[in-house]
Design a protein around this nucleic acid. Structure first.
Length: 877
RNA sequence: GGGAGUUUAGCUCAGCUGGUUCAGAGCAUCUGCCUUACAAGCAGAGGGUCACUGGUUCGAACCCAGUAACUCCCA
């Protein structure tokens, strides 16, 4: 049988993923084992897999697979999010292509199109995740608009309303004129934009003088309600108590005084437009100013503007400048940079707009949610996010939860003909409630009640996710929720710490009295090499599926993890995936080597030390890896594994025990080596599930039953670590390296054998390790002497001296130079050590073990110096 | 404008409670190798004023203050 020269991922991936599915290895049902649970941050139904998902889900899969192999009942719940605004926008666009306008459709008709769209595209990401190897319990896949989850949303709304936490009110909201809906503060992205600052002259009423205001939004002057100046501004004392006249429309407005105005910004005169600016709105309330809203929902000007009616706000801005110019009211225009809010979903410029919305009070919900984190019951990883979290939670504003959309859970508010409203789940219940609050209205029928048109913010469903996926609302005491909740780890992006994580903690506390998860692992943002965020519009993001095809899923997983320290952004580059692919190949080739050996039962085992050494080294690495996992340092856990496999196992161990070409190996070594390899497959599995499963089933490891799979193999407990053996072997490795170095510098082929002589100081028993040195250094004869050998290349390892006789003569001058350099170094070293030891304050203040260490350093250095000095004398230099 | 964070090798990052002359890893680079597991590889090697300036200390990449640059969050 011939084994391919390199690892071919494609076939193994398809084969084993379906094998796992078929044998239900991802399936989790409550049992007596300890649960380990992750709920997947549900991706949007509108999305396609991007690098952020790849990173996020690789991490979750590593955690879940490891837990599974630790004997825990691992449950990873997948699902998707309905993403009201984004999805509705997609559906509207799709309908437009088919020549259908949303406004011509009934709500029901529109929703059926939306569902059709969701069925068609909504599962794409989840399918793509399978290619990555995600071991989710797919039977538990949920969608935020599933019936049970929607019910939970409605009931939650009713509960919070009854508690007084939800109210309806007119507020300045972030209006998305393209999505025609309000969005929350968190959904507004601020960007610095080049704008113009228009200086506009307003005539003072009854006078022939003017004042000048500076604004970036000249199209809103028609909505002005006042001009505000700082009462301390001496330039404008003459304006106190007067009125100004808005140009073009000639409406008279008062000049008011408020210290809010910054005197040195613009002209020091501020136009106050309560309907179209948040700060102006507050100023308006304070000064009892009228609110004049001149914009329609789609961002065009309405008849209140009197001019430019029906024109879009940005077109109006362009058109009004010449009008003002003509009227002699435009003083000048300057370039100006400022922050502008954009809708996260549609990228439209956000319009501050007054409207009637539903709000959820945050103060009471925020307090306990903050405490969980401050008390350390919930850990944010890395810790630095705790500060950000606290800052946000302490300054949290009420949450605008209504959206002027159809796709989502419709708000369970029902309006009576008289304008009163009741909150109820169904029309029938609403009718009952309505009769209660409106006793005069006994002949109300359900047809008289109109349900609120709006739907709830998507986050108002996803904040319930860790509870609702286990039906914790429908059936609060069911076996699943009792077993899986609180979940263990949440892996998500820091961008949605407030949107989502904070609110889940609130919901967890409010509805279950318990935190929803114990650890929040915040991943970085995937950026390209130049540090730009990867995005579709920039076109700088590789297609994850193509990456998988190119490097294999294991390779890509390794690549993602190699460059992803927790919480730090990662500068992604394909070369990391290449490194991952190469690693898979290395493992493949180690397998090929072992696979090719024949066993001779009659041979005795010459490799006892090597085996013992690797056993210790393996256990040492296990400890490191475990420690890294405990601290969620996944990239370091992977690196520790990588080095164990590549360096220790392949480069050292296999070379130590490898039989001469086409010679058989002894049984004992073979068994140990195969067993090591199997253990290595286990620790590799969470990172590289496919290649490990593929190799696991090779006959090299004997017969396997159908369910004996790497994915469910149990990780080993840490065994003993023989530190003495480990340090001795380190020295032995150094000897080998030195020999190779000599070969390199003298251009001696590895094939040419050498003689090696050691003058040992007795720290290492070369009878024991000699065979390893001989084999790896290609040394025929290793002899021990008590005296130096002349005419040989020499080197030192620790305080042992080694000699390799050379036919060509050694240049004493070069040798002298080398020795002198080393002596210089050691002298300096010794001096610094002695300086410490003779320093009274050091001796008084330093801990005893540190002093001991210094003494040991001194002794070592002195011993080495002695040898070097002897050598120098011998060479007479 | 307010708050947080970052700055260590060409790149990406470790460096826990100051204590080896402490400066480390992977990748990249350079040199030599087609040595029958692996050129997607093997064997070696060279890379750094730990952003800057002061301070504390017997001792500072690490603690403190200030400066600079960058990033993020909030307004």
């Amino acid at each position: 049988m011939s084994i391919s020269k390199t690892y071919q991922p494609k076939e193994a991936e398809d084969k084993w993923y379906s094998y796992w599915l078929q044998h239900k290895f991802f399936r989790s049902v409550p049992d007596e084992r300890e649960p380990y649970t992750i709920v997947m941050p549900p991706p949007n139904v509108t999305g396609v897999l991007h690098m952020g998902h790849m990173l996020n889900n690789t991490i979750q899969d590593v955690l879940i697979r490891r837990a599974r192999m630790q004997g825990k009942n691992a449950c990873w719940v997948p699902g998707t999010d309905h993403a009201s605004i984004a999805t509705e926008a997609k559906v509207v666009a799709m309908l437009k292509e088919r020549g259908i306008a949303k406004k011509d459709l009934s709500r029901e008709a529109f929703l059926s199109y939306a569902w059709e769209w969701k069925e068609k595209y909504g599962g794409i990401i989840l399918d793509q995740l399978k290619k990555l190897g995600a071991s989710c319990d797919w039977d538990r896949t949920r969608f935020t608009m599933d019936e049970e989850l929607s019910d939970a949303v409605i009931e939650t709304f009713i509960h919070l309303y009854k508690k007084g936490s939800i109210y309806r009110g007119v507020r300045m909201v972030n209006w998305d004129p393209q999505g025609k809906t309000a969005v929350s503060d968190e959904e507004v992205i601020r960007k610095e934009v080049n704008q113009k600052l228009y200086y506009i002259k307003y005539q003072i009423s009854g006078e022939d003088s003017y004042l000048t205001i500076a604004t970036t939004r000249p199209e809103t002057i028609m909505a002005d309600a006042a001009i505000c100046i700082n009462p301390n501004d001496e330039r404008y004392l003459h304006l106190h108590g007067k009125n100004a006249i808005i140009p073009l429309i000639n409406r008279e407005i008062p000049i008011i005084l408020d210290e809010y105005v910054t005197m040195d910004f613009g002209t020091g005169c501020l136009k106050v437009t309560p309907a179209h600016d948040l700060n102006d709105y507050e100023l308006g309330i304070k000064h009892n100013l009228p609110v004049i809203d001149i914009l329609n929902d789609d961002g065009t000007l309405n008849e209140k503007a009197q001019i430019l009616v029906g024109v879009d706000r940005f077109v109006a801005r362009k058109k009004i400048a010449p009008l003002l110019e003509e009227a002699g009211s435009l003083e000048k225009v300057e370039d100006y940079k400022s922050q502008i809010g954009f809708s996260e979903r549609t990228d439209a410029v956000i319009e501050p707009k007054l409207s009637m919305q539903w709000f959820c009070k945050m103060d009471q919900l925020a307090k306990p949610a903050l405490d969980y984190v401050l008390d350390g019951e919930i850990k944010l990883i890395p810790e630095k996010f705790t500060n950000t979290y606290r800052h946000w939670m302490e300054n949290v504003k009420d949450w605008c939860i209504s959206r002027q959309l159809w796709w989502g859970q419709q708000i369970p508010a029902w309006y009576l003909p008289n304008g009163q409203y009741v909150i109820a789940k169904t029309n029938a219940e609403a009718l009952e409630e309505a009769k209660k609050i409106s006793p005069d209205n006994t002949n109300l029928t359900d047809a008289d009640l109109l349900q609120d048109e709006d739907v709830l913010d998507t986050w108002f469903s996803s904040w319930l996710w860790p509870i609702s996926v286990f039906d914790g609302f429908k059936d609060p005491d069911n076996a699943d929720i009792n077993y899986y909740y609180p979940t263990n780890d949440l892996v998500t992006a820091p961008e949605i710490l407030f949107f989502w994580v904070a609110r889940m903690i609130m919901a967890g506390h409010e509805f279950r009295g318990k935190l929803p998860f114990e650890n929040v692992y915040l991943t970085g943002i995937v950026r390209d090499k130049q540090g730009r965020k990867m995005s579709k519009s920039l076109g700088n993001s590789p297609d994850p599926i193509e990456l998988i095809e190119k490097f294999g899923a294991d390779g890509v997983r390794v690549g993602m993890l190699l460059c992803s320290p927790a919480g730090n952004d990662l500068m992604f580059d394909e070369s990391y995936c290449e490194q991952g692919r190469n690693f898979a190949n290395k493992i493949w080739n180690a397998f090929k080597l072992i696979k090719g050996w024949d066993i001779d039962e009659n041979l005795s085992n010459p490799n006892k030390i090597a085996i013992e050494w690797f056993d210790s080294r393996f256990n040492q690495a296990l400890t490191e890896i475990e420690d890294n996992f405990k601290q969620y340092r996944l990239s370091e856990a992977l690196m520790a594994t990588y080095k164990l496999v590549w360096d220790d196992y392949c480069a050292w161990y296999l070379e130590m025990i490898k039989p001469v070409y086409q010679q058989p190996i002894d049984k004992e070594t073979y068994t140990a080596t195969v067993s090591f390899f199997e253990n290595i497959l286990k620790i590799l599995h969470p990172f590289m599930p496919f290649i490990t499963e593929e190799l696991w089933h090779d006959e090299l490891f004997g017969e396997r039953s159908e369910r004996d799979c790497c994915i469910v193999a149990q990780l080993l407990k840490n065994g003993e670590i023989n530190t003495q053996l480990l340090t001795a072997t380190e020295s032995v490795k150094q000897v080998v390296t030195q020999i190779r170095n000599v070969r390199n510098s003298k251009q001696i082929s590895p094939k040419e054998t050498l003689q090696l002589t050691v003058k040992s100081s007795g720290n290492i028993n070369y009878d024991t390790y000699g065979s390893i040195i001989s084999k790896l250094g290609n040394v025929t004869e290793l002899t021990s002497v008590d005296d130096k050998i002349s005419g040989a290349v020499s080197f030192m390892v620790g305080t042992d001296e080694f000699f390799i006789p050379m036919e060509e003569t050694i240049d004493p001058a070069i040798e002298c130079e080398r020795l002198k350099k080393e002596k210089e170094y050691l002298d300096g070293f010794l001096q610094s050590v002695n300086a410490k030891l003779s320093n009274e304050r050091f001796m008084n203040n330093a801990k005893p073990d540190i002093i001991d260490n210094e003494l040991k350093k001194k002794a070592d250095a002195e011993a080495k110096l002695k040898i070097i000095e002897e050598n120098l004398t011998a060479l007479a230099c």
